[in-house]
Write a protein that binds this DNA or RNA. Structure first.
Lengths: 341, 341
DNA sequence: CCTGGCACTCCAGGACTTTGAGTGCCAGTC
DNA sequence: GACTGGCACTCAAAGTCCTGGAGTGCCAGG
């Protein structure tokens, strides 16, 4: 019983692997020829019938081979696939490419291209969102007159700035103290927590300085609230067209899904929770009709152990999961490492 | 003679219009039925034979209707098409959508979506490049100690900043003078001219202040030299899939071309010279194998009469040129108007 | 210069057949 | 009980053949 159960899983694995490689429904005869299962086609047929009964595989037409269902891929991913480690050449390529980046934009740009190239799929990278990053430094500089400039630098290298209108020219003494206190309570904190951390600040100042402090805090709060619509960057869309004729009619829908950035962002954030934990959504699991033939593989990435955004890959459900998952994980890790420097 | 020449052109125009609408080769009979040319099919056939001889149309197979060639479309665009004015509803839609934008990023983002929606093609918008913009304002603020911040704001709303390391804490007096002089000679100038305009500045200062001035100018020059790789933004790629089955095999190549941003930028800058002058490249004219079935329509846009970047549209050579050209022109004008405010 | 007529071409699409991979099932064997 | 060989059956894909019809080029006559 246990033995035949094991073999059934082996058969499923073999079907997935063959189908991914050949892109054609796989039959019992071809299966025993390509894999050294020690049994005859007839036996395999019984197993296949059982697998079909359980919903892991299906036949396109009555007398064709079997094709994995979404449920079949799911089982494959969860229990049957062994993670393909990246070759050391690949590791070096990743390192070399990403180390050359000069700033955040460049890192993101290189990352998305790299991911598309490694996986030969469509790659998507979410920009580190402001709300999830932490404060690296706040600078406060007088612009002369009654204006000053508030500069906010995040741990991901993003810079936000804002001009603050204050009643009168503040003295350098007060400004220096405010700057010091601001940095003391905010450095290293998540942007979402900053508002709370600074709420008590005015009480530390003399009453006549409080309007100034409040103006600055308002500006700070404002610049955090922008919630810079979370951007995503794509690469490798041309890979869709290389996925073969059977995927051709899915290209349109996928392109549409890719333009709906909001939906894509939602999907990514649902599925990619932890750092370097790779999430997979297969076909209908994406809960998106446009992606019913598509699998999404994603991971969070970040800085200093905090997830600040996600990256991932989209492709036909018939894809090389072990390879793709390994690539996504490796890239997420390298990007995280770079952002943590 | 002149009469028959005129009719031939009318025939070409009719062929283009019919083919764009029906997507099927158009024959002599259908032509006389749909358009009120006052002659018989046989006469049209003679004209068509002449047009084919001259290379404006071609037949897919011996006994099929005629299809315009790239050369045929070219003639149509240059001499036969009357620009379709935008409906006032469309104008209002454009205005309403673009007026809601809050900053440069938002303008670009809305523009590219709008263009894709209006034309039902792939839209591409180039970010205003630094080198073509002009200086709106330069701000110079001490960061305390021996550091200061240089902030450059362009007419397109782009902000560049840089920290400058100067030998010692400069006095506010010198700083103020430098700031005033900098703005006096740079405001309104193209960034490319700035370096030249400020070259004589050090001589206006006392010898002991010149190192400071030079440091600032170096930083300024540096921040201009970045030549921020010229970015482009896309929208409406899903429209490629809606272009019909005859265009299906071109989708892959077009997506590839779209990923080669460098090539795309080169193409755009070659073809879209003047403000609100719409340029058209048809099929092989793009000098790109990936775009041999594709037409590109583009225009420059800018601020205060200066072209700072381009925008445009890509689609099948069989596209509605008058409508598309009108849309591109209208959008380019509105964006220019907004940037000029 | 235009037109009607005519012979010709050849693609598109339908009907039909063949082929072969693949299945399910059953009776027999270890 | 698990596996196997054999066998009849199914059905999509590919090939063949045929016909209809849209379209052409050309020519002789107005």
């Amino acid at each position: 019983m246990a033995v035949s159960e094991d073999r059934r899983l082996a058969v499923l694995r073999a079907i997935v692997e063959d189908y991914v490689q050949t892109r054609e429904p796989v039959g019992s005869k071809a299966l025993v020829e390509r894999h050294s299962l020690g049994v005859s086609p007839a036996t395999i047929r019984n197993d296949m019938a059982a697998l079909e009964e359980e919903g892991f595989i299906t036949q396109p037409h009555t007398s064709a081979g079997r094709v994995p269902t979404d449920k079949g891929y799911r089982l494959f991913v969860d229990r049957l696939s062994t993670v393909k480690p990246m070759s050391s050449a690949e590791r070096r390529a990743i390192e070399a490419l990403l180390d050359g980046a000069v700033d955040l934009d460049d890192v993101i740009d290189r990352t998305v291209r790299l991911l598309a190239q490694l996986t030969r799929q469509v790659a998507v990278v979410q920009y580190p969102s402001l709300t999830r990053s932490t404060v690296r430094h706040i600078e406060l500089v007088p612009l002369g007159g009654s204006r000053m400039l508030l500069v906010l630098i995040t741990n991901t290298g993003r810079v936000e700035q804002r001009v603050v209108e204050v009643g009168a020219d503040p003295g350098e003494a007060v400004l220096g103290e405010l700057r010091a206190r601001l940095n003391a309570v905010t450095t290293g904190r998540r942007l979402t927590d900053v508002v709370r951390s600074v709420s008590f600040l005015p009480t530390a100042f003399a009453p006549e300085d409080r309007p100034l402090v409040r103006s600055v805090l308002d500006a700070l709060e404002d610049s955090l609230a922008v919630e810079r619509e979370e951007r995503i960057v794509l690469a490798g869309t041309a890979n869709l067209a290389r996925s073969g004729p059977d995927f051709a009619r899915s290209i349109g829908p996928v392109l549409e899904a890719l333009e709906e950035q909001v939906i894509l962002l939602k999907l990514l954030s649902e599925m990619a929770g932890d750092l370097s934990e790779v999430g997979v959504r297969i076909g209908h699991e994406t809960a998106n009709d446009n992606l019913s033939e598509t699998a999404v593989i994603a991971s969070g990435y970040g800085s200093q152990g905090e997830v600040v955004a996600r990256l991932g890959v989209l492709g036909p459900t018939r894809m090389d999961y072990p390879m793709t998952m390994a690539a996504v994980r490796a890239v997420a890790r390298y990007v995280s490492r770079i952002l943590s420097m």
